[in-house]
Computed example of a mutant assay.
Amino acid sequence: MPSKRYKAAWARIGNSSGFRVENGFFKDNPQFAGARGEVQVINSDTLLVRLQPIELEQEKDELLLSLFLDFLMDNALRNPDELEVYTEAMAAEDDELIAGVVIDS
């Protein structure tokens, strides 16, 4: 199958410069949305771009965490009287509960 080409254009992005790639690239390759990578200059008119796609499971976890945090924020804004100050006593109790717990990486 022949490789598909996408248009790119130089753009100012915040305080940096970058290249914008047409949206069709991300529609055809959703695994690269939000990816990080590097650019290598091959010669005066050729670049090699390597992107590390975001793992689908990582993306799913990030989405769930984001939705949970949105829920918490919405609940806090709707019910400010239910908020409780996290005290040093609470922190000490939490530290006692997790003392000696080892997490496998």
Rank of each mutant, 00 (worst) to 15 (best):
P2A: 03
K4V: 12
K4D: 06
K7Q: 09
K7S: 02
A8E: 02
A9V: 03
W10I: 14
W10Y: 14
A11K: 08
R12E: 00
G14K: 04
G14P: 00
S16L: 13
S16Q: 13
S16A: 13
S17H: 15
S17M: 10
V21Q: 06
F25N: 00
F25K: 12
D28T: 08
N29W: 09
Q31F: 07
F32D: 01
A35T: 00
R36V: 09
R36H: 14
E38K: 12
V39L: 13
Q40R: 12
Q40V: 13
Q40K: 06
I42L: 06
I42V: 11
I42W: 03
S44Y: 06
S44H: 06
S44T: 09
D45I: 09
L47E: 10
L48E: 07
L48I: 09
L48V: 09
V49C: 13
R50H: 08
Q52N: 11
I54T: 06
E57T: 10
K60L: 09
D61V: 15
L63R: 04
L63P: 02
S66N: 04
S66Q: 02
S66I: 03
S66E: 00
L67Y: 01
F68Y: 12
L69S: 11
N75G: 02
N79E: 03
P80A: 05
P80V: 13
D81I: 10
V85Y: 05
T87R: 03
E88I: 11
A89T: 11
M90R: 08
M90G: 07
M90F: 07
A91T: 11
A92W: 03
E93T: 08
D94A: 13
E96I: 15
A99K: 02
A99H: 09
A99F: 15
G100K: 12
V101L: 10
V101F: 13
V102R: 06
V102S: 14
I103R: 05
I103Q: 08
I103W: 15
S105D: 04
